[in-house]
Design a protein around this nucleic acid. Structure first.
Length: 221
DNA sequence: CTCCCGATAT
DNA sequence: ATATCAGGAG
């Protein structure tokens, strides 16, 4: 995509959804952090279903530690990978209490030190909680970046680096949200609905879909 | 690289 | 039946 095409792409996405937000539900920054950790390889809807009851009771790291690992597991049994997530959330909460005054640190390096928090989760928290212009590359952003040609790469880090270079203002703050929503509801992994995509010009994946709707895979050549 | 791992869509 | 879902740790 050329610079002009990229600008027009985001201009249209912004027009369709002027104020995109995460679909994860939370009442404070700590709950946001927990929700994002729980959302690995799970749907936002599934996470919200579990955290609704959890977050009504637990609003602080102290309350999470008091609930305990087994108590937490009881709340998140319906979420995949719940054993390792429960262990990480308890350990993460203990670490916040011990080293960060029970607050969520406001820089990526400190966030990544927390158990269960990788670069993607840290980027989400920095953006959604603190307004940083980070580009969290999850499965959707990775797929959309590669399909459209906006940001191709073999790893999430490579895609993030290209987004960092190519996404212009005033779209940098919300760019990753638009790409996630596009990936979740339009540029879907299984049955993409290309006719709804603003990127109508020369997306190589769309061409492939039009030529052979059944055989189009993750990336176009 | 493998393992973790339930709910949902296809 | 199986692919996919706001990945991260060992």
């Amino acid at each position: 995509m050329t610079k002009d095409q990229i600008f027009e792409f985001f201009r249209l996405l912004a027009e369709l959804n002027p104020a995109p937000e995460t679909e994860l539900e939370f009442g404070n920054v700590y709950q946001l952090l927990v929700a994002v950790v729980l959302s690995a390889q799970a749907t936002d809807a599934g996470v919200n279903k579990a955290t609704r009851a959890l977050f009504a009771k637990v609003k602080t790291p102290e309350e999470m530690v008091a609930l305990g690992e087994e108590g937490l597991k009881a709340h998140i049994k319906t979420i995949g990978l719940f054993n390792s997530k429960a262990k990480n959330v308890i350990a993460l909460s203990e670490q916040l209490i011990a080293h960060h005054g029970s607050e969520v640190p406001q820089n990526r390096d400190a966030l990544v030190e927390l158990p269960g928090v990788g670069r993607k989760t840290a980027n989400v928290v920095m953006n959604c909680a603190f307004g940083a212009e980070t580009f969290a590359v999850d499965t959707h952003v990775f797929r959309v970046g590669n399909r459209t040609g906006l940001a191709k790469g073999k790893t999430p880090e490579q895609v993030e680096a290209k987004l960092e270079k190519r996404v212009p203002q005033p779209f940098r703050r919300d760019a990753h949200h638009w790409l996630i929503l596009l990936g979740r509801y339009t540029c879907k992994a299984r049955s993409p609905e290309c006719w709804r995509c603003p990127e109508v010009e020369l997306c190589s994946f769309r061409k492939k879909v039009l030529e052979n709707p059944k055989k189009a895979k993750l990336t176009a050549s």
